[in-house]
Nucleic acid binder design. Structure first.
Length: 276
DNA sequence: CACGGATCCTGATGGC
DNA sequence: TGCCATCAGGATCCGT
């Protein structure tokens, strides 16, 4: 499910309510992608000082460490009251991690369990660095520039869409937004990354920033089950130009949108608007 | 290093 | 209705 916009929407929906909360207890369901890395109850008593994000990782900054939360393909967070009418019910079959805090109950719901919650002593801890070090620049941050992205494409002769997904040239662009961004930039997804021209890299850079920012503003993309921590669905799925629109007329030229497979993932594009 | 493919897991969907 | 194959928003690991 979640690409960068969905994680950011999740972060925003949780941050204001959990900042300053003290962890009271921890409950776990089935194993996630990676082990937590500490005794669950060792988190009790720690305080959540800030909620940050790096790529698709949500970072719960604690006074004695950090929890790195990844939503995988099907994860979402839910935040409910600790007591009262809106209080959390017992853990469901797909609830695999729960933090009871003084300000509310935070749960990770993740049917496919590709998600993860990992504790590290700090962001410079090897545990955290192993996950974060390889990530490319933040698409909405100052390190992401058209020249930097152009240079990052140079070592790669594979299709540009796959390079976007790999997260080294820029982080956070997943399968939906990769198709959208390439359409907006008028670059064919199959183009060899190292053959991207400078003008194209300028267009692609702008398309990435614009598309992700817009998706965040719209609350992300809800295809089937994404919701922010308060339960609200996103709206961006109503505005995709190519993703999920195989056979439908292109917004710009009316030619049918095509679907191909690249690396076992679907790619959508317009063969006229994205001629090469 | 770069690349392609298998892999983790569950649920929805479509063909027969 | 059941059964089977395929596909789904991610990302790592392994062999070449």
């Amino acid at each position: 499910m979640p690409e960068l916009p969905e994680v950011e929407v999740t972060r925003r929906s949780v941050a204001a309510r959990l900042r300053g909360a003290t962890i009271l207890s921890v409950a776990m369901g089935k194993p996630l992608r990676w082990p937590l890395g500490c005794e669950p109850q060792a988190l009790a008593g720690m305080r959540i000082e800030e909620l940050d994000r790096r790529g698709k990782y949500l970072l719960l900054m604690l006074n004695q460490g950090v929890l790195l939360v990844h939503l995988g393909m099907s994860g979402s967070l839910q935040l409910t009251d600790l007591v009262g009418p809106g209080a959390a019910s017992p853990l469901g079959v797909h609830d695999h991690f729960e933090l009871k805090t003084s300000f509310g109950v935070l749960r990770l719901h993740d049917p496919r369990r590709f998600g993860a919650v990992v504790f590290a002593g700090s962001l410079s801890d090897p545990v955290a660095r192993k996950l974060l070090d390889r990530l490319g620049p933040e698409p909405l941050g100052p390190d992401f520039t058209a020249p930097q992205m152009f240079a990052a494409m140079k070592p790669h002769r594979v299709a540009i869409k796959q390079v976007l997904l790999a997260g080294r040239a820029v982080v956070g662009v997943g399968n939906i937004y990769a198709s959208e961004v390439l359409f907006l930039a008028r670059v064919r997804p199959t183009r060899a990354a190292n053959l991207l021209t400078k003008p194209e890299s300028v267009r692609l850079h702008a398309a990435i920033q614009q598309t992700l920012a817009r998706a965040i503003d719209m609350g992300g993309t809800t295809l089937r089950d994404f919701h922010d921590a308060s339960g609200s669905a996103g709206l961006f799925q109503n505005h995709t130009k190519v993703y999920g629109r195989e056979g439908q007329p292109c917004d710009v030229c009316k030619n049918p949108v095509r679907m191909i497979r690249q690396g076992q993932r679907s790619t959508f594009f317009c063969s006229v608007c994205q001629a090469r």
